[in-house]
Design a protein around this nucleic acid. Structure first.
Lengths: 369, 369
DNA sequence: GGGAGCGATGTAAGCGCTTACACCCCGTCA
DNA sequence: TGACGGGGTGTAAGCGCTTACATCGCTCCC
């Protein structure tokens, strides 16, 4: 065998830890080295330089078939697993995108995440997930995330955007999902993707009005979430269009328990309505069930509609009338935009808005079950 | 200003790209550098060495308050975002764990993921998510994941385990969630965490039998998923314990549409039963709804029970009798174990099994709504 | 008054990759 | 027959951090 030049001539001998006799000597031939193999050990074993090993592994440079085989064998024999961090450092890309969402209850976030992950994976990017709820210091968590990704997608409702830009310092491309432009203060490197809200909410509200209902209540708090306030705007618009006076929203958090409370306020007469337009399906479902359990007829006595089209909305009777959002596509789009941006594309000047679809079932008064 | 020694004396001048005039000169004072600030620029601006900057940022070494302030100011002024990859390389830890699950439909995976992410975040670790379904080459995806994490948690049903160990080459700690020991071939660095299945399934089945039912069917395919086959084992055990003959499982995939098909086979008389023990709630719910829509009485004519206790199971009437699993805890536990293992702990020799809880509602024949 | 001791900081050696560039060896062609 | 070209490989310079170790002033105490 030709004298292989030391691959890393100056490399000091590993600081010899006063090794106990029980530690197997990594250099023992045949023994699996306790610590991971590196590109150096692979190169040495294959009798080539580290550059060649890298070329084989990256697969984007010409290497003779014989050499390739030698390298692959060495990789296999040594159980070589490359160190991603070293590659990232060298190529100056993390090859990962961050996704920040509040939590993962209900199908909305899951769908979004699946879309995002799927597209990211296709693009060869890993996904690092950050759940904002329950974190005491979200900005610093996002800051830490920024440390390890090439771009970040954030849900508008994640309560991050205001502080986000500061945390990121405009350093990385950011895509805000289902947020409003008001979330983008400096806004240079931030862009928006969202599902349509105002129009479909107006449409849904108009539909309920068409059923002859006149005292509609909007249930859910528009304040914190931009998409909810857009939906309320649609609710208002539908009223205004017919010269009606929209009621103030019934501001409650999006919790099943809150829905029950709202239903109780209706049952007690505190709240009066013949139709409820709810900010999401969870709310709508818990209200409807409570009303029914108390003997009220839905939609006979009171109509109830929701938003999101969760699975349960198909199963309850009457079926819940609601609005389906292209959530999966939203996730795909976010990943896609991030990729473009990392590739050097300029941020889109205007938000991308995906269309939604009103799903009519029985709870609004339609004849469908 | 004292002559600051060049921080990186030998550092060659950046290979001057034949820069077009349109590119702003990064060195222009006041201008935000186009490329990210590094620890060097921060050190230079603060008039200290990079070591000091690092110390301030890591916060675990004594630095005088004055110096700390100078550094923090520089960090702020330059919008410095550290490069995680460089840190990872230096500290020789990715500070991230991988989680491999099939997909994200239903609350099961979401809960698991939330538990995992929560605990991982507490431990200062990022979570890289990999959805196995839809990936054409899962082993290579897992291999790539292994490149960037210190340990991996995999769902037993993710169809990964058989190939997983090979992909990882025993290089990283692995925790298999809700898998069976048979998933662990070489098994050296792999350990298992799971929810109890056999006993609670036996208990649930016995409960249904106690309602006076005698012709029970098990719906769902035990073959691919270890947890499902354990549940079927419990079904069998309950029968055997009373000298009854358990029916062969009705092997169908876990899809709503399949549930509808099963219901149709019952309605047509092809399948005969007075109680259905379903592998999960999705199946149970779609079957029950279909039967009801066709005029059958549940539980009068036929009882239906599920597994998982999804949200819908609380909303349907009758409520779905089911089994609640400590899914969140499973996620927490997986992250916890991974952390221990990365810390040097030995793999647990025996699987950790968390208890589950039978939730009785009306669909089994109980008086509860 | 001159160490010893210590807090604060700087120096420099890596961490394990990627890749520009140099080089070598042959086959070709003028 | 020698210049040329090009495929295949090696050399070495980073990528941006962390951290062991060296250094530098001080204060403190004998």
């Amino acid at each position: 065998m030709a004298t292989t030049p030391r691959q890393r001539p100056e490399r000091a001998a590993r600081p010899s830890t006063p090794s106990t006799a029980s530690m197997p000597d990594p250099s023992t031939p045949g023994a699996t080295p306790a610590a991971g193999a590196t590109i150096y050990s692979v190169a040495e074993r294959a009798g080539v330089s580290i550059a060649t090993v890298s070329r084989v592994l990256q697969g984007r440079a010409v290497v003779s078939e014989a050499t390739r085989q030698k390298v692959l064998e060495a990789v296999d024999a040594l159980h070589y697993v490359p160190l991603g961090a070293a590659r990232s450092l060298a190529v100056r890309h993390h090859e990962a995108y961050g996704l920040v969402i509040p939590e993962l209850t209900g199908p909305y976030y899951s769908e979004l995440l699946m879309g995002f992950e799927t597209r990211a994976a296709e693009l060869g990017q890993s996904v690092i997930l950050l759940l904002a709820n329950g974190k005491s210091d979200v900005p610093s968590a996002v800051g830490h995330l920024a440390t390890r990704v090439d771009g970040i997608a954030v849900l508008g409702s994640a309560a991050v955007p205001p502080t986000l830009t500061r945390a990121l310092r405009g350093r990385k491309p950011v895509v805000v999902i289902a947020g409003s432009s008001s979330d983008v203060p400096g806004g240079e490197r931030v862009e928006l993707v969202a599902a349509e809200n105002v129009h479909s909410s107006e449409q849904l509200t108009a539909h309920v009005l068409d059923h002859g209902r006149s005292r509609l209540l909007y249930v859910g708090d528009p304040a914190p979430a931009p998409d909810i306030s857009e939906r309320y705007a649609g609710f208002v618009a539908a009223h205004t269009a017919r010269g009606l006076d929209p009621a103030e929203p019934v501001r409650v958090p999006f919790l099943e328990s809150e829905g029950v409370a709202v239903a109780d306020r209706i049952l007690s007469g505190e709240l009066e309505a013949d139709a409820l337009v709810c900010a999401n399906d969870e709310l709508a479902l818990s209200i409807m069930t409570r009303l029914q359990d108390a003997g009220r007829d839905v939609p006979g006595d009171i109509a109830v509609v929701g938003w999101d089209d969760v699975m349960t909305s198909r199963y309850v009777r009457p079926g819940m009338t609601t609005v389906r959002q292209p959530v999966h596509e939203l996730g795909v789009l976010a990943a896609e935009r991030l990729h473009q941006r990392v590739d050097g594309a300029a941020p889109l000047p205007a938000p991308v808005v995906l269309p939604t679809e009103v799903v009519l079932r029985g709870s609004c008064g339609c004849a469908t079950p």
